[in-house]
Amino acid sequence: MNPTDAATALPEVANAAAHADMSMLGLFLMADWVVKSVMISLVLASLVCWAIIVEKSLLLSRLGREVRKLVGAAAPGSQAAPQAPQGEGLAARVLRAGTREWRDGREDGESRFEYRHRMEHAMRHALSGELRKVEPGLPFLATTGAVAPFIGLFGTVWGIMNSFSNIAQSNDTSLAVVAPGIAEALFATAIGLVAAIPAVMAYNRLLVRLGRLRQDGQSAAADLASSLSRRPPVLAASHANRAAAAE
């Protein structure tokens, strides 16, 4: 390119850069296909994270109500019904598991401690099975929170490399020429942070809530087992009578 053509081209490049669309949509449309792929993947990851956050928050709220019922049933002075409770909630499942062992009664040579431990183990097993339903999806939040900033940074590095390449081709280092390319590159990092920050905060929050529910539920199961172990298994006699009659 001769000096005359370069002098003519430079104002055109500067004018195009000055009128570049700096909105989020404009930055996306101006981006290279690699940077666009990074942006799209981060946006999709963010949408999946928000879906997981909403779903797990609702599930933990429901389980929280069930654990409070369980804690209420284990409270001192509470008359926990010896009949197996109806329903499919966490509290009903845990209480059914405990009353099933309670009705079987103590086996020959079984101490009261072993009897209580058997009931507590059954209730803890039922509790853990329900709480494990919260865990799927949480690793995706942790992974997104850890990886998304680096994926965005990769898009930024790639975009800045393209900007420097354009600077070398235009022989113009003015801010008007450099700004659009750098802006679209930094936009990838911004999207990565937008995806990562809520994911990390939600993961920590959900994990703390899950841990508290598990701790409260296990404490309630221990109290219920201790309370039931002091009661005579009134149905054990009827089981024995039916077994004797069958013989």
Rank of each mutant, 00 (worst) to 15 (best):
A92K: 01
A81I: 00
G89D: 14
F154T: 01
V194P: 03
V177W: 02
N166A: 15
V13W: 14
L193T: 03
K56R: 14
S128E: 14
A245P: 01
L63G: 03
D216Q: 11
A183S: 09
D172L: 03
D104A: 14
A222C: 07
E247K: 00
L47R: 00
R65S: 15
I53D: 11
A237R: 15
P198F: 15
G211F: 03
A221N: 06
R212P: 00
A84N: 04
E114N: 04
P149D: 10
S226M: 15
Q86K: 10
E107F: 09
R230L: 13
V34K: 10
P139T: 04
E55G: 09
A244S: 09
A6Y: 12
G87A: 06
W33V: 14
F187V: 14
R124C: 06
M22Y: 12
E114Q: 05
R205Y: 13
P198K: 14
G98F: 00
L58V: 13
T143H: 05
A168V: 02
S23L: 00
A126I: 00
V234A: 13
E135T: 14
V43L: 15
P82Y: 03
S219N: 12
Q215N: 12
R96Q: 12
L175M: 15
G152E: 06
S78Y: 03
V200M: 10
P198E: 15
A195F: 07
A75D: 04
F187G: 15
G109H: 07
K36E: 05
V134F: 03
L235F: 06
V71I: 01
G87I: 02
E88Y: 09
P180Q: 08
L206F: 10
S41R: 10
G105V: 05
Q86M: 07
S226D: 11
R68F: 01
M123N: 01
T143Q: 08
R65F: 06
I197Y: 12
P11V: 13
I160D: 10
L90H: 07
L193S: 05
D21A: 09
S163K: 06
R112K: 02
R118S: 01
Y115N: 05
L186Y: 02
S174R: 11
A240I: 10
P82F: 08
S174N: 07
E184D: 10
F150R: 08
T156W: 02
G72V: 05
F113W: 12
A237D: 14
G64I: 03
A221T: 12
A188D: 07
V157R: 11
D21C: 02
S46W: 11
E120G: 06
M123Y: 02
W158V: 08
V208S: 13
S111D: 05
W158I: 06
A126R: 04
E110H: 04
A51F: 10
R212W: 13
M30G: 00
